[in-house]
């Protein structure tokens, strides 16, 4: 009977011990506002760097979302890759998209038994490409990691139109 009990406990605990996938979610928006509407003087171009007023928040959480998962298995490491999707609405020969993590942002999810928050990568602006970019490393679940974006190369030479691309964050158990 006691063996059967152990087996049942093992079955219940197994997901929390081994099966902690992560998921990543993004909320908020990236807004470049009216930064490009002003050309100071006839004959001039836009300012060379356009900074976002970003309210983008990213959360890396245990897939189960259960308190038990964080309790039984805290500090599980993860890796976040960052990529840009190619888009016909983005002139990648001219436009450079750069991203920086707000280093003071982010807080632990159910962090009572976890070590202090750890997250590394993108402390300074880095240019994003469609290929391999730098990665972000962390452990445990962290919510509301904030990022700032800036664009270089915006110019009247590109003509009046909308530009759009996606930044894809992919989380892996590390």
């Amino acid at each position: 009977m006691s063996k059967l009990l152990l087996i049942i406990i093992g079955l219940i605990a197994a997901p929390f011990v081994y099966g902690q996938n992560f998921n990543v979610t993004v909320s908020g928006y990236v807004d470049f506002g009216d930064g490009l509407t002003l050309v100071g003087e006839a004959g001039s171009d836009f300012s060379t760097v356009l900074e976002s007023q970003s309210d983008l928040g990213l959360t890396v959480a245990y897939s189960s979302g259960s308190v038990l998962a964080y309790l039984f298995n805290p500090d599980r490491p993860w890796k976040l890759t960052v990529g840009m999707t190619g888009s016909s609405d983005w002139d990648s020969d001219v436009l450079q998209l750069e991203m920086k993590r707000n280093v003071s942002s982010g807080s632990l999810i159910y962090g009572w038994f976890a070590r202090p928050k750890y997250i590394a990568g993108f402390e300074n602006y880095e240019t994003l490409t469609a290929g391999i970019n730098s990665e972000i490393y962390g452990r445990h679940g962290i919510q509301d990691i904030q990022f700032n974006f800036r664009i270089k190369g915006a110019s009247v030479v590109l003509g009046a139109k909308d530009f759009e691309t996606d930044v894809v964050f992919t989380v892996y158990d590390n």
Partner: peptide, 11 residues
């Protein structure tokens, strides 16, 4: 697992 942030601006 993925999440996507949309970036857009207008000239």
């Amino acid at each position: 697992q993925n999440a996507t942030a949309n970036i857009r601006f207008s000239i």
